[in-house]
Design a protein around this nucleic acid. Structure first.
Length: 460
RNA sequence: GGCGGCGUGGCCGAGUGGUUGAGGCAGGGGCCUGCAAAGCCUCGUACGGCGGUUCGAUUCCGCCCGCCGCCUCCA
């Protein structure tokens, strides 16, 4: 059984499932007020890898990830740009999915939208008010954090110390800085829904409670997100469930930061913040590799140099894919009529079962690549093939598709004819012509390799 | 002020109380190749500092230094 770090207990614990064989997982998704950035990409990749690995292990995974499509930042942007908030949300949700597709992130089982759940959120807030866990003020409805048992569990700080450390003056009508808004009463011109407290919109922390419970039910298995969501977002989600006596998430999983030059990534730093930017200039798989290369709870440094490093490492894997033709079943390990190295597969499981140790898993892939090449170099092709297939299988289990484009011949007739001319020249041992043609192909942006079957070219 | 994380070779990044320091990238040497590319072999004598525990610490404990984060919206 897999073991995972649980933020609530602060320990690596066995992942116990509500229903054996089935994993229910809720991962906090993006607020669609802007283009996705690298941090979004990381959390999406981390939980995509977790999901794929659980599925690879034979479990059925129900993966829910929401879209926050109503929020102050969306409203602000809309009013600045003289458009409807829903228009802004639609634009950036489209950008979100485009980026996810490009990264090869599997679509969640379901991606609920906050605006589809406002009524249920009103119901939940009403229930909190009825239990006197919440109070109304002229500007909204707030949850009284001090009344919640164990508030501060996820933050690992007692209520008093959180309260003492509050850096922000109490604003609005909050009684305590730790209380948080459940319902914001609408100001003129703001989008609003009806409620017992007048027209308004829900606060951020309520949607995930309602949507996760609706789609996964009480006591679901995993609640995930990036580390910054621990406090206050997840703390406040949990607080609402606790206040209502509802069994909430059993396991809290959080991934670490994306850093840029030693500091938490922030938009003011400029370089590489937009995910689309990165994906435009680099192989999207390189970002996945970069994410896999360090542990999910560690910060990762994303710079041009670390991305390029990952791209080169990827090239080694792709070269193996070309050499051994493992391209036929990428991402679809099930039913692949291949043999695998059982020892390597079980090593992969022990790495991944140990708190999703992808660095170890990845290291074992590279070892397989070397072993496969060594076998092949000494003519033991069947053994080599098994090792190469195993490496590709493990990559696929982590969502990393290797590219085998050696059989691509649609580079155009000119290139095709250059390749033929070169092969002819080589056959006639006319090395200087062969080299000239190679230079020409390289100048046209191709990598040229000689193989027993003749010249092989591919775009670089 | 409170809470937490980190500091490993040229770079990235794992890991461990003890003979042989994952993996990748870069670099040196060699093999292979007509030459390359790809591939293979090989070279690197690391764990911020000071104490302590120990037969023995990079790994445990304490202190210090440095960096980072959370306590506010944030993936």
């Amino acid at each position: 059984m897999m073991r995972l770090y649980d933020t609530a207990s602060g320990e690596i614990v066995p992942l116990s499932l509500r229903n054996p064989g089935e994993v229910s997982m809720y991962v906090c998704g993006p607020t669609v007020d802007n283009l996705p950035h690298l941090g979004h990409g990381r959390f999406a990749l981390v939980f995509d890898v977790l999901r794929r690995y659980l599925e690879f292990s034979g479990l059925e995974v129900v993966h829910i990830s929401n879209i926050t499509d109503i929020d102050d930042k969306i409203i602000n942007r809309a009013s600045k740009e003289h458009r409807e908030p829903s228009d802004v949300a639609e634009e950036f949700e489209a950008a979100w999915w485009a980026a996810m597709d490009s990264l090869g992130v599997e679509r969640p089982t379901n991606s609920p939208h906050a605006t589809d759940y406002v009524e249920r959120m009103v119901d939940l807030i009403g229930a909190l008010a009825a239990k006197e866990m919440a109070y109304e003020t002229p500007d909204g409805v707030y949850l009284d954090a001090g009344k919640v048992d164990g508030y501060g569990l996820l933050a690992h700080q007692p209520l008093d110390s959180l309260r003492a450390g509050a850096r922000i003056e109490t604003h609005g009508e909050k009684r305590s800085p730790l209380d948080f808004v459940l319902w914001k009463k609408a100001k003129p011109g703001e989008p609003s829904w009806d409620s017992p407290w007048g027209p308004g919109r829900p606060g951020w922390h309520t949607e995930c409670v309602v949507m996760s419970l609706d789609l996964l039910g009480e006591g679901f298995d995993i609640h995930g997100g990036a580390i910054d969501l621990i406090f206050p977002h997840h703390e406040n989600e949990r607080a609402q469930a606790v206040a209502l006596g509802i069994d909430f998430a059993h396991h809290w999983v959080h991934n670490g930061w994306v850093m840029v030059e030693g500091e938490k990534m922030s938009k003011s730093l400029g370089n590489f913040t937009s995910l689309s930017d990165l994906l435009e200039h680099h192989d999207p798989r390189a970002y996945r590799l970069l994410v896999l290369r360090s542990h999910y709870r560690s910060p990762i440094e994303v710079t041009p140099s670390t991305i390029e490093d990952a791209e080169k490492a990827l090239e080694r894997l792709d070269a193996m894919a070309r050499r051994f033709d493992v391209g036929g079943y990428l991402s679809t390990w099930s039913g692949a009529p291949r043999s695998y190295d059982e020892g390597a597969v079980s090593l992969f499981h022990s790495a991944m079962d140990d708190d999703l140790d992808t660095p170890r898993a990845l290291a074992s892939v590279f070892e397989l690549v070397t072993r496969a090449n060594v076998r092949a170099d000494s003519g033991r092709l069947d053994e080599a093939q098994i090792l190469a297939d195993t490496a590709a299988l493990i990559c696929a289990a982590m969502g990393l598709d290797l590219v085998d484009d050696s059989t691509r011949t649609d580079h155009g007739t000119l290139v095709q004819s250059l390749v033929e001319q070169r092969d002819r020249a080589r056959k006639e041992r006319d090395w200087s012509s062969a080299d000239l043609i190679r230079d020409e192909l390289v100048a046209r942006g191709f990598v040229v390799e000689d193989s027993p079957a003749g010249t092989v070219v591919r775009r670089r």
